[in-house]
């Protein structure tokens, strides 16, 4: 389904003519209330390669900064007759609120610590292309699960696809009740990485490092940073992923991040564009052809 469709777009993106006119005449707006380079660019490319008109709106300098409420923003957008809205917002649930108020398709580009579904989809595609399957694999998600929307989306998706999920991190970075989300929890990274097929590292926000959650970067890297020594516990062909942007020397050793044999981090970015094309493609298939039919 969506992943198969995305597979096709990977090939298209690798060919010389990357454009398709599937979405000609459609308008896609990337509405980003939070800074993002990778996700926004990825959605922008995906839309343009399908022939849509893509417009980026950042909250900085926009009417949102001037105090407009989220619902007023939705009303404004409705008046512009767009087809797809991609939203990134720092508050969990904000995307859902917006989606209830706009009459176009909405893609969650990441909301607070809630979800980042296209990241999970691109991760799934990356794993499937590397390992040939998702079912039966053991995937370790390591680090700051507490603040991570990527982790939550991946837990749902990987479980749905039949992979088994492990979470690794200090207790202060694993939210309560997470053990009831169909995962195995480890506090010792060496044990947690035992025989895993895939290692997903999560970004640690440096601003959260000092103080309460974790004593220091030095200590975090010592116990939870991915280096070759800890990587040795995983399967010999285990692959490494990271949603980016990476903090080298905090959650991941530079050599490991750059290991072409093991690291899929660059491939994740490539798959991101393809997966987002597939999302736009599938969503617009169900949109009314003529304005006002809805």
């Amino acid at each position: 389904m969506l992943l198969d469709l995305a597979d096709g777009y990977v090939e298209q993106n690798r060919s010389l003519d990357k454009r398709k006119n599937l979405l000609r005449g459609r308008t896609v707006i990337n509405l980003f209330f939070e800074n993002s380079t990778r996700t926004r660019t990825s959605f922008e490319l995906a839309g343009k390669r399908l022939g849509a008109d893509v417009i980026n709106m950042q909250s900085a300098g926009s009417s949102v900064q001037k105090g407009e409420t989220l619902i007023d923003t939705a009303m404004t957008l409705n008046a512009m007759h767009l087809d797809v809205l991609v939203v990134r917002h720092p508050d969990s649930g904000a995307v859902k609120l917006l989606s209830e108020k706009v009459n176009c398709a909405v893609i969650n580009g990441g909301d607070g610590s809630h979800e980042h579904p296209t990241q999970a989809l691109l991760d799934a595609l990356t794993i499937r292309r590397s390992k040939g399957k998702l079912s039966g694999l053991t995937v370790a998600i390591c680090g700051d699960v507490l603040h991570s929307r990527v982790a939550r989306s991946n837990i749902y998706l990987l479980n749905a696809m039949g992979a088994s999920v492990r979470l690794i991190g200090p207790r202060t970075l694993l939210p309560s009740g997470v053990d009831r989300m169909g995962v195995e929890v480890f506090h010792d990274m060496r044990r947690g990485l035992e025989n895993v097929d895939v290692i997903m590292m999560l970004r640690i926000q440096n601003e959260r490092m000092r103080g309460n959650f974790i004593p220091s970067i030095r200590e975090y890297f010592h116990f939870f940073g991915l280096d070759y020594e800890k990587l040795g516990r995983a399967k010999p062909d285990a692959v490494i992923m990271h949603p980016g942007p990476m903090n080298r020397g905090v959650e991941i050793d530079s050599d490991v991040a750059d290991d072409v044999e093991r690291s899929l981090i660059r491939s994740q970015v490539e798959m991101g564009v393809a997966v987002r094309m597939a999302c736009l493609d599938m969503l617009t298939r169900h949109l009314p052809i003529t304005e006002g039919a809805a």
Binding site: G211, I214, E219
Partner: peptide, 14 residues
């Protein structure tokens, strides 16, 4: 906690 001041955790693991 660092410096016993009750604010930031010490590097307990190390």
């Amino acid at each position: 906690t660092k410096h016993l001041d009750g604010k930031e955790l010490s590097e307990m693991g190390m």
